[in-house]
């Protein structure tokens, strides 16, 4: 296909990308068939990605709890009554409050810790550095089962069962190591000369970090914050065990309570699920531009 390139004299290689384009298709250009195929696959994939969520929204409009079995009926009877019921007659706003406290608390504390850690491991090679990175990685793989029982005991001794503080601390233990890893990768991309310039101008090491590096690392911090927030927002296992009072439930636990009762109120549950998903998904799309850079910076450089 491109062998024509080899036939052209060496002098032509300077403008090689342009020259063979006349005869060979330029890279990035595709035949119509390939283009249709690409769009076809992407459309199917997008539909698969979209369908369960669209279906949930559709079901949330049906006023009867068994409407999910008879979707045809929803078309005639669609209304927002489920939403008004969920907002007025359930603990929805209490759950929202708990979820916000827990996820924002985790985000603030978690990102703060992760940033200092990430900076330290990015800039210094202190004794124990490798071991520390290894520990950060190992904490990533703790199954909930190994820590849940002892954590339950410790928290109940500390009187932190059924409290937001306990849950925030626990979420930090899972979020911080990953974020530190991610931020280390991001700090690595910031030239060390900036630190040096700060030090020359008389900033303390902490001053350099807070006043120079943190502002530069804002995209990375956004990704870390987002990751922490969505982890805390959606965590199920610990929240199910450590929260007892149904006014303190986070959404992940509260949503289950719609069907764990004898009467499965699926229509209310669908409406609540949609309401829960909206703010966090909006947040997701706000930071998703930084997502690729942030994740790969953490990913490629470990």
């Amino acid at each position: 296909m491109s062998t024509t390139t080899l036939d052209t004299p060496a002098a032509a290689t300077d403008k090689a990308p342009a020259a063979p384009a006349r005869r060979v298709r330029r890279r990035g250009e595709r035949s119509t068939a390939a283009s249709v195929l690409t769009h076809g696959i992407l459309i199917v994939a997008s539909l698969i990605a979209l369908f369960p969520i669209a279906w949930l929204i559709f079901l949330s409009l049906g006023p009867d709890k068994d409407d999910y079995l008879h979707p045809g009926r929803i078309l005639d009877t669609a209304s927002l009554s489920n939403y008004s019921f969920v907002l007025q007659h359930t603990n929805f706003f209490k759950w929202l409050g708990s979820t916000l406290i827990v996820s924002l608390g985790t985000t603030v504390i978690g990102v703060l810790f992760a940033a200092t850690t990430g900076y330290a491991v990015s800039r210094m090679r202190f004794p124990g550095y490798r071991k520390f990175m290894w520990i950060l990685l190992v904490t990533q793989m703790f199954p909930v089962a190994v820590l849940m029982v002892p954590m339950y005991e410790i928290l109940s001794e500390l009187g932190l069962i059924d409290s937001y503080g306990g849950l925030i601390l626990i979420y930090c233990t899972t979020a911080v190591p990953y974020c530190a890893w991610l931020l280390k990768g991001y700090f690595d991309t910031i030239p060390i000369e900036i630190d040096e310039a700060g030090r020359v101008d008389g900033l303390s090491p902490f001053g350099t970090f807070v006043r120079l590096i943190l502002p530069l690392a804002r995209p990375g911090l956004a990704v870390a914050a987002f990751y922490t927030c969505i982890t805390a927002w959606g965590e199920v296992a610990f929240a199910s065990v450590f929260l007892l009072d149904d006014t303190k439930y986070t959404f992940a636990v509260g949503l289950q309570s719609f069907i764990s009762e004898h009467d499965a109120q699926r229509h209310y549950m669908a409406a609540a699920a949609v309401l829960i998903a909206v703010p966090i998904s909006a947040l997701f799309y706000l930071v998703q531009k930084n997502l690729v850079t942030g994740l790969t910076a953490g990913g490629t450089k470990g």
Partner: peptide
């Protein structure tokens, strides 16, 4: 944007949606 939707929406929400869809006479 569409393809990252399953990631954007919390798992515990989408799993319930799947549960509705996978029910015996679900969609």
């Amino acid at each position: 944007m569409l393809l990252i939707l399953p990631w954007a929406v919390p798992t515990f929400v989408t799993v319930f949606s799947w549960r509705f869809m996978l029910a015996d006479s679900g969609v």
